[in-house]
Computed example of a mutant assay.
Amino acid sequence: KIAESCEQAGKSASCQGCPNQTLCASGATKAPDPAIAEIAEKLSTVKHKILVLSGKGGVGKSTFSAHLAHALASDSTKEVALLDVDICGPSIPRIMGIEGEQVHQSGSGWSPVYVDDNLAVMSIGLLLSSPDDAVIWRGPKKNGMIKQFLRDVDWGDLDYLVVDTPPGTSDEHLSIVQYLSSTHVDGAIIITTPQEVSLQDVRKEIRFCKKVKLPIIGVVENMSGFVCPKCKNTSQIFPPTTGGAEQMCADLNLPLLGKVPLDPRIARSCDEGKSFLSEVPDSPAAEVYRRIVQSIQDYCSNHVTEQQSTT
């Protein structure tokens, strides 16, 4: 499907008036980007690659990506990396507590910033002079940055590479899928909140995954109810008027990995650059996170077994 889309790049009616029309049309007949093979070689030592997607902004995608990375890295025998490809809104440095850290160049490429001995992070936010700097780039430049992240970063031997993506189904998503097309990608985790306005965009993301043949590991419903710490009553801050993620998953035959309750301490931990799972390990939300992460690990293990049995 991606190849078909590339053949029509710059030629369809919807391309009229786009400032990149000529560039896309001229590149439609070129040979495949040699960087795809280079990236496949670079990432050949990465066992599992997981994309975190959401059609809607503000649903907690970066928060989930960060805590997934923290949870996977809690096993000291595993090497984990978190790649932030949200070029215009990089929030991972703040969430991971590494704002102000610098990326260094070595003979083998860019060196990612390490949160722990076995947890590395790369984000354009680490390349900016200030967290308030705006990245005002068109698609081709953003795509080039993603290519550099995958090809030029010294990732080393990894058990898991978690890729945090921006909301939508546009340039960055097509680029990451295309550049990883020659590697083994375990699949995508779709993040949503319970209300229909979020689910509507998430359905588009699911359709995107199916069009580009990206496996879907499952769906996570964030901000799923709030339990008052005093009266213990549950309030639906974002009411699931159409049944929430549970009904959507039943309709689309997708696994629901879990429902993470709304907990103000999650946002506070992110602002402070700390792991909520370590700060409040006994909270209901932390317990849900652990179950979700275990399901993801089981999926990745089974996925590898299935691949080996077919080769």
Rank of each mutant, 00 (worst) to 15 (best):
T241D: 15
I189Y: 09
G55H: 00
S14H: 07
P281M: 09
D298T: 03
G10E: 13
H67N: 10
P131G: 02
M248A: 04
S283T: 07
G244R: 10
Q307T: 15
W137M: 09
I2D: 04
K259D: 01
P140K: 05
G243A: 02
D86M: 01
D116I: 01
L277A: 11
D251G: 10
P264R: 13
E272G: 01
L51S: 11
K147Q: 13
T169K: 10
V103R: 00
R203T: 06
K42A: 10
S129K: 12
L128P: 14
D117Y: 08
K210F: 00
G58D: 12
D201T: 05
S62T: 13
V121W: 00
L72E: 03
D186E: 14
A3M: 14
V219D: 07
S123R: 06
G156P: 13
T22W: 01
I292R: 11
D86E: 03
H184W: 06
G273V: 05
I190A: 04
I216R: 04
D171V: 03
L254S: 08
L158K: 11
E221T: 07
S65F: 02
K210Q: 13
K204G: 07
Q195A: 06
I124Y: 06
L51C: 11
D116C: 15
A81D: 02
V163T: 14
I206M: 11
K210S: 15
Q308T: 11
K141G: 00
G10P: 04
V121K: 04
Y289S: 09
K232T: 09
M122K: 06
P240A: 08
Y289V: 04
S76Y: 09
A267C: 11
K142F: 06
D186N: 14
R290I: 06
S26F: 02
P90S: 12
E196S: 09
F208D: 07
S175M: 01
P90G: 05
M223T: 01
Q148M: 11
D171Y: 07
G225T: 06
I217Q: 08
A250T: 10
G258R: 13
P239I: 04
S278N: 08
T234F: 00
S278P: 13
K11R: 07
Y289W: 14
D159Y: 13
E272W: 02
T234K: 15
S62G: 05
I189S: 11
N143F: 12
D33M: 08
D33F: 04
V202M: 08
E205K: 06
V163S: 06
K211I: 03
G144V: 02
R207H: 15
P32C: 02
G89R: 02
P284I: 12
C209H: 15
K78T: 07
S309Y: 12
R203D: 06
G60F: 00
I39R: 02
A37C: 04
A37P: 00
E246H: 03
S301T: 15
G156I: 13
